[in-house]
Nucleic acid binder design. Structure first.
Length: 466
RNA sequence: GUAGAUAUAGCUCAGCUGGUUAGAGCGUCGGAUUGUGAUUCCGAAGGUCGUGGGUUCGAGCCCCAUUAUUUACCCCA
């Protein structure tokens, strides 16, 4: 009999008690903010039909879907001809379900299936894991949690403004004050494309622009030249991209630049992008938003997902080397592929796993976030164990998370246990204390001990500020 | 999918141009007059050096293969 070393699949993780406690802290902050803005929770199945998932994330996204082998004899419909013509032909016959890739598409599917019963505008949040068959690396996992908040059924830019407010509140509550909320508009990108004379393809241009901060002007230039853009067009592009100034100034200057470059106003009204960004800014001002130094209009922000049509968002934590911790945008026609056209939606998502890594690196988890038990009751001997049972019950009735050490061993061992678990208090009643009908309470953080009666004890342990 | 790096104790890592019996710190367990943790001192357990071949008198070290992990690219949270 061979003993095999246990392992877990690539890109997945176990979360130990301390990690779960800290993750729950992040989830709690996000959930409270979402609910404060009127978003209601939704959960959807881990599995979706592949017909729902495929084709929504582009070819690369389809590659990254985890597929679920059909139950039973999954290969019963596969013919020798299928095998000869390759995996693409076989796939629909052996797998009809897959793990969800994000939360937005299942949400769109849910909205379409329940359109008769939902009240619009429909605001929902969703905190669940998603799976991608990516190559794992720093800040990138195959199983990770997303925290989405989306509204469908309204075009109002109030939603965009409130997304900025929610992003800002979550980040500030978590202590991630060194952040930048980047915002752009798909129409602004479209205007760039027109300003360049509609050379090459739109997506090639967007993908290249998005990399500007990573590979620099030279890198983008070579990439665009390879994709068939002319040197003149690239030159125009960088003149447009390098507009300076604050939020409002950049909007003004781009407007002028677009007009000079001859971007037509009538066809698809490309100036609407700039107008909408301006309106979002005005709504935020009206609300009394004070964090404009963290809100940046970044004309280079493109984002990969092809379904965005309006404002797009992304959050960068400036003092940590980490990919974006949040992203989102407006999509005018997400439900269209499910047979419900013309429903506009806007939403965004936090990546909890990356937020965790940021908080961890910056040491921003609050003290005691990992500790569950508040008071360890020491166990001297069998007799004292019996004596302490009613005390334990009273502590728990007072909602003090507490535990009695289950064995009568040396106190040193029991203290070590409390210390390792981060338990702040140890309660002792040996023969001396029992004779006086008192307890000894030791605060492990300060090392101080005090003699107390049970009546004095409980208020001390229930007080919040200790 | 492309390119690189790494693999030695539970964890983090040393290990000299290839040379006797494999090293540390942390952790675990035990002890330092039997009622006190994190700080001190002493001791113990714990390793087929990822796996399989090869070169050599001799391999943790060199070569090949394989698997796993990891970083960057693509893409993305």
């Amino acid at each position: 009999m061979s003993v095999q070393k246990p392992s877990i699949p690539k890109g997945t993780r176990d979360f130990g008690p301390a990690v779960v406690a800290r993750r729950n802290y992040i989830f709690g902050v996000i959930r409270r903010v979402f609910e404060k803005f009127g978003y209601a929770p939704l959960e959807t199945p881990t599995m979706e039909n592949l017909s729902v998932l495929t084709g929504k994330y582009g070819d690369e996204g389809d590659q990254l879907l985890f597929k679920i082998l059909n139950s039973g004899d999954f290969a019963k419909d596969v013919t020798p001809e299928d095998l000869a013509s390759g995996s693409k032909k076989i796939l629909p016959k052996v797998a009809e379900k897959g793990l969800r890739y994000d939360l937005t598409v299942p949400f769109a599917r849910y909205v379409v299936m329940n359109r008769g019963t939902l009240t619009f505008p429909f605001k929902r949040y969703q905190i669940q894991p998603v799976w991608r068959a990516d190559r794992p690396q720093r800040g990138r996992y195959r199983e990770f949690y997303q925290c989405d908040a989306d509204v469908v059924g309204t075009d109002s830019l109030l939603c965009e403004a409130e997304i900025v407010l929610m992003m800002s509140e979550v980040l500030n509550t978590l202590g991630l004050t060194e952040h930048t909320i980047k915002i752009n508009h798909r129409r602004v990108l479209g205007a760039f494309y027109q300003a360049l004379g509609s050379e090459g393809t739109e997506t090639d241009l967007f993908v290249a622009i998005d990399k500007l901060d990573k590979i620099g002007q030279e890198g983008v230039t070579t990439e665009l030249l390879e994709r068939g853009f002319s040197a003149g067009a690239i030159n125009t592009l960088f003149q447009l991209l390098t507009v300076e100034g604050g939020f409002a100034e950049k909007l003004e200057r781009l407007q002028v630049a677009f007009t000079q470059a001859g971007v037509p106003t009538e066809a698809d009204d490309q100036y609407k992008g700039l107008q909408e960004l301006r309106q979002v800014q005005e709504l935020l001002q009206g609300f009394g938003f004070t964090q404009f130094q963290h809100l940046e209009f970044d004309p280079t922000l493109a984002r990969g997902l092809s379904y965005y049509t309006g404002c797009i968002f992304e959050i960068k934590i400036n003092n940590v080397n980490m990919g974006s911790v949040s992203g989102g945008g407006r999509y005018d026609n997400l439900t269209g592929s499910f047979g419900l056209p013309g429903v506009s939606g806007v939403g965004f998502s936090f990546g909890v796993d990356r937020l965790y890594d940021c908080l961890d690196e910056l040491n921003l988890f609050p003290e005691g976030a990992a500790a569950i038990t508040r008071c360890l009751v020491a166990n001297f001997d069998a007799d004292s164990m019996t004596q302490m049972l009613p005390v334990l019950r009273q502590l728990r009735e007072a909602n003090v998370p507490s535990e009695l050490y289950p064995e009568s061993t040396k106190l040193a061992k029991q203290f070590k246990y409390a210390d390792a678990k981060g338990i702040p208090y140890v309660l002792l009643q040996g023969s001396e204390e029992r004779a006086a009908n008192q307890f000894k309470l030791k605060d492990l953080r300060t090392g101080q001990e005090q003699q107390l009666s049970l009546a004095e004890l409980i208020p001390l342990l229930t007080s919040q500020n200790q």
